[in-house]
Design a protein around this nucleic acid. Structure first.
Ligand SMILES: [Zn+2]
Ligand SMILES: [Zn+2]
Ligand SMILES: [Zn+2]
Ligand SMILES: [Zn+2]
Lengths: 147, 147
DNA sequence: TAATTAAATAGAAATAATTTTCATTTAAAT
DNA sequence: ATTTAAATGAAAATTATTTCTATTTAATTA
């Protein structure tokens, strides 16, 4: 079940709390990557008591559980994105409007080979991300880079 | 000339200051990635007056000029590395001892194709990095993750 | 259903990396 | 030597992120 969030949380041994579900729902409905602070703002509309650390913690847990993905932004701030595509893949992110698109290319096999054969080390994780302007933003006069 | 730093700086329209040269020299002699604070500590041994912002600024400029490369660390702190290899390539970084090794694989062509053909956007930059344990650290009992 | 327990949370405070500001110094062009 | 724009130091500010701890809650058990 793609968006059976309670089941998803159960599988990760995370309790099914209204706030966890809301965070997931917020990210799922959003078509762009969001910062923890932005998720928090949206959460405050739904819950009268909601702490920013709760948002940070949940986003981190969900990211660790591979439910959401972390965006590696040039400004080095945290952003998260919920992607429906459950298979291993990477992203193009628009630096202007924050849209995310899937990149159907990953050199993981080649990287694995290099690391094991040549470097003789252990690959723990890899980052691949393409930053740019999406089709729409390419045609806009003013590029905006909001943090 | 590979390490003609004055020439390198001139090409980038950066003034040839003793501190710039020292920062480059420090990074070049180091076999691991360093944080700005760590570079600063080493600079303080050479200059009695040296500000941390100067180190930050210089590292950023040198990185922009592609003289040194920024490390995308999982802890999201800044680290820099001077790599002799002047051609476009990517890195394996050891999360334990901080060693950096070149990865002779890059999907840039494929990424370009995806971005222009499928996404119809503009590729501004891309990140590819492999994080892991190097051969040496794989055999150590204790992994250490110093910030 | 009530009791139990460990996980989750709020709120306040702390942390610490990074950036900004601005007065002074310096590299390099004239 | 003079000039000028770039580079720098020191102090202060910023601000994203994390830590701490008392309280609440989800989920398990009796
Ligand atoms: Zn866009
Ligand atoms: Zn995706
Ligand atoms: Zn190592
Ligand atoms: Zn390299």
């Amino acid at each position: 079940m793609l968006n059976d969030f309670p089941l998803t949380l159960k599988k990760l041994n995370l309790k099914i709390t209204p706030k966890r579900l809301a965070i997931l729902e917020i990210l799922m409905k959003e078509s762009v990557y969001l910062s923890p602070g932005e998720v928090w703002k949206k959460m405050k509309k739904r819950f009268k008591r909601i702490g920013l650390p709760t948002v940070y913690r949940n986003l981190e847990e969900l990211s660790e559980g591979n439910i959401i993905s972390e965006v590696t932004h040039p400004n080095r701030q945290l952003y998260y994105y919920f992607c429906q595509n459950r298979s291993h893949h990477h992203h193009f992110i628009c630096l202007s409007c924050r849209k995310v698109e899937d990149i159907n290319f990953c050199g993981l096999n080649e990287l694995e080979k290099e690391v094991t054969k040549k470097i003789k080390g252990k690959l723990l994780s890899h980052i691949m991300q393409v930053n740019g302007f999406c089709r729409h933003c390419l045609n806009k006069k003013e590029k905006y880079f909001d943090s």
